[in-house]
Design a protein around this nucleic acid. Sequence first.
DNA 1: GTCAAATACATCAGATTCTTATGTATCTTT
DNA 2: AAAGATACATAAGAATCTGATGTATTTGAC
Lengths: 113, 113
Amino acid sequence: MIYSSELIKGTLKTIVLKLLADNKKMYGYEITQRVKELTLDKIQITEGALYPTLHALEDDGLVTTETEFIGKRVRKYYSLSPSGKNKTKEKVSELADFMETMKFLLDIKTKSV
Amino acid sequence: MIYSSELIKGTLKTIVLKLLADNKKMYGYEITQRVKELTLDKIQITEGALYPTLHALEDDGLVTTETEFIGKRVRKYYSLSPSGKNKTKEKVSELADFMETMKFLLDIKTKSV
DNA sequence: GTCAAATACATCAGATTCTTATGTATCTTT
DNA sequence: AAAGATACATAAGAATCTGATGTATTTGAC
């Protein structure tokens, strides 16, 4: 099963930040593969969604980049900046909180009027 | 704290369906208030987001409507159709599954290479 | 009794963000 | 030599939310 795309909306940035926090530096393609692997193919980040997101993180100063050549092929590594680390903590705890709230909402049985 | 709007994206439809499943019938304004109340103001559904969503659910045959007059003021009640009940089960279990996956992703510490 | 706030519907321009191509190029495996 | 994987990037179109605006009634406070 692959999650419907709407579900992933809004969590992509947080996922990317969290992965970078755990892995020091990663490049785009690696991120797509890692997420696919960690989620047993349930979350497949497309490149069309990922690259604009990475560029936005860079524009916001949350990540820094360094380019490396593997043979003749370029590889662009992303790392969290100090403000990126803070942002990651915020986003992750917000998402954790949100999930608690959603869990509660989904379990509601009573007609609390 | 109010969740960032991106987070709520993708879950709105599921929230509405679940509320309708638990409450037989509800009207739009009531849904916004109930969600606000149940989530201690953390999730505030705007009318600009809710009404188009309700209309879409109706167009998809997932809900049926009945109009009632309270004094001179109209009130539009929404109820799940049979296919809406099935859809709700699907969406809720998908979201539950997704949350498990996200929980796992957010806890990742190892550099599993 | 009147004025603000709450109730209740609805629409829409603009913003955001994802999907689905498309493009370019290199490296690896068969 | 060809196919598939690696690796970047952009862009038109679709979907969906924000925030504003509009209309109208009812309730509560002073």
